[in-house]
Design a protein around this nucleic acid. Structure first.
Length: 426
RNA sequence: GGAGAGGUGGCCGAGCUGGUCGAAGGCGCUCCCCUGCUAAGGGAGUAUACUGGAAACAGUAUCGAGGGUUCGAAUCCCUUCCUCUCCUCCA
């Protein structure tokens, strides 16, 4: 959510930002119009209320001294009716104003490259060596199926498309990666581990920006106002919803493993095979609550924390500075890490690290008091995958595959695999 | 699922026979005074949001949330969410 004051005082700046994102300015225009009406109504109804409050004092005095107050009571009855009517109109106008406000995306940071498509994302770093094979590398789904460690057909039968059934060392490597990632973030990067609910309410989804605009992307539980978490970002960020933190509490670092559930509406036909785009996948997510002055430093460090995992696993990757059109609704600045996938001969997103500045904090009302007695200010929220676990499994399978169809386990992961160094056909 | 109790400011906690209640008191915090240091003590101040205003300041709203009764609601009524206790059920 943007500061309504900014929308009022600098609408042209906002309009330009929306254009850079490739978004229409409709919500902005609606907001400006409704906001004007809202203030008109507010002035009128508040004047009436001030009058009513004053007269009510009079009534109390008259009654106390035993005098007759019938005349002004009758008059106030009319004022009361008028207030009720205006209040009702005001409420609907306010609801609509707020809704428009919730539908306007964040303003990109000034450093964000301007562009409308992913072609304009700027690659600024490549790390690791792309492996060369003396044979044609297979896709991870062929490897996994042949090794008997993931059964896509069983998942399709048990549930449906875009689900997977891990088995044996497949299940083991998924679990090993979760622990490996969590341990590094906890022990080396200073995060506090949290294990949140995997189901969240509407207010939480709205707080992080997943609602109201993207409801069709989420799984909603029938006959409730509950949603399956699309990412741990939602429950973890909302941990501090409607709270005021002290300055000493900042920064807060949380890391959480959760399964993530996404309807993948609108992506029919894309990445239908393998682990890349599933309705349910595991992810380790880092979330930071930062002082506004430090948030870009914190964000850069968080990107580094995600990179650490890729480096320890020996996976080649590149980093991209996301352009205005590819930023994501709530983001002010975003870096994506893409891992090399030999089977597909391309890079695939494996982590997305975002500084939301105060966009989420404003929606979720997460504040801190800079010093005792000072006015509360919004914190900045930052988060990033550290990493998407299923895609990491896919990357390991494809990068570490051998000519005979076996797969070596990255050295750093071996202790988490109970000493297993290789997955091979039985 | 059944029966009961409760949700008040940064925190604790009064008020709940409707009217000087944005709300006593305490803690915490800020500033000042006092004390050689420490401990203690005295005084003043200390919610948030919105609206108008250049500002000073003024107004409005907020006692879990929503609605109702009333000239007037923290206080009465209804709905709903959450917390706690007992019973029931259960991994």
């Amino acid at each position: 959510m943007l500061d309504p004051k900014v929308l009022r005082s600098e609408p042209e700046r906002v309009r330009q930002a929306l254009q850079n994102r490739g978004e229409s300015a409709e919500a902005l225009d609606q907001f400006l119009e409704l906001d004007k009406r809202r203030r008109e109504l507010l002035v009128e109804v508040e004047q009436l209320k001030a009058r009513r409050n004053a007269v009510s004092q009079e009534v109390a005095k008259l009654k106390k001294s035993g005098e007759n107050a019938d005349a002004i009571i009758a008059e106030m009855r009319e004022v009361g009716d008028r207030i009720k009517a205006l209040d009702e109109e005001l409420r609907t106008v306010e609801e609509r104003t707020h809704h428009q406000l919730l539908c306007i995306p964040n303003l990109p940071h000034e450093s964000v490259p301007i562009g409308l498509t992913e072609e304009e994302n700027v690659e600024f770093k490549q790390v690791g060596t792309i492996p060369s094979f003396s044979f044609t590398p297979k896709s991870h789904w062929d490897l996994a199926t042949e090794l008997g460690i993931i059964d896509f057909e069983a998942a399709a039968k048990v549930t449906g498309a875009r689900f997977s059934f891990y088995k044996g060392l497949g299940a083991r490597i998924e679990r090993a990666l979760i622990n490996f990632m969590l341990d590094i973030h906890i022990d080396e990067h200073g995060y506090t581990e949290v294990l949140p609910p995997f189901i969240v309410n509407r207010a939480s989804m709205t707080g992080t920006g997943n609602l109201p605009k993207f409801e069709e992307d989420a799984f909603k539980l029938v006959d409730t106002d509950y949603f399956l978490t699309p990412t741990a970002e939602v429950p973890v960020t909302n941990y501090y919803r409607d709270e005021i933190l002290t300055a000493e509490q900042l920064p807060v670092y949380f890391v959480a493993y959760t399964p993530c559930f996404r309807s993948e509406a609108g992506s029919a036909g894309r990445d239908t095979r393998g682990l890349i785009r599933q309705h349910q996948f595991n992810k380790v997510e880092m979330v930071k609550f930062s002082h506004p002055d430090r948030s870009y430093q914190e964000w850069e460090e968080l990107v580094g924390h995600a990179e650490t995992i890729l480096q320890r696993l020996g996976l080649p990757y590149r980093a991209l500075d996301m352009c205005t059109g590819d930023l994501g609704f709530g983001a002010a600045k975003k870096t994506d890490l893409e891992v090399w996938m030999p089977g597909a001969d391309t890079y695939r997103e494996i982590s997305s690290c975002t500084n939301f500045e105060d966009f989420q904090a404003r929606r979720a009302n997460i504040r801190f008091r800079p010093e005792a007695g000072a006015k509360p200010e919004f914190v900045h929220t930052i988060n990033g995958s550290g990493l998407a676990v299923g895609r990491t499994v896919a990357a390991i399978l494809e990068n570490y595959q051998q000519e005979d169809g076996s797969v070596l386990i990255p050295e750093a992961l071996v202790p988490y695999m109970g000493g297993v160094t290789k997955i091979e056909k039985k």
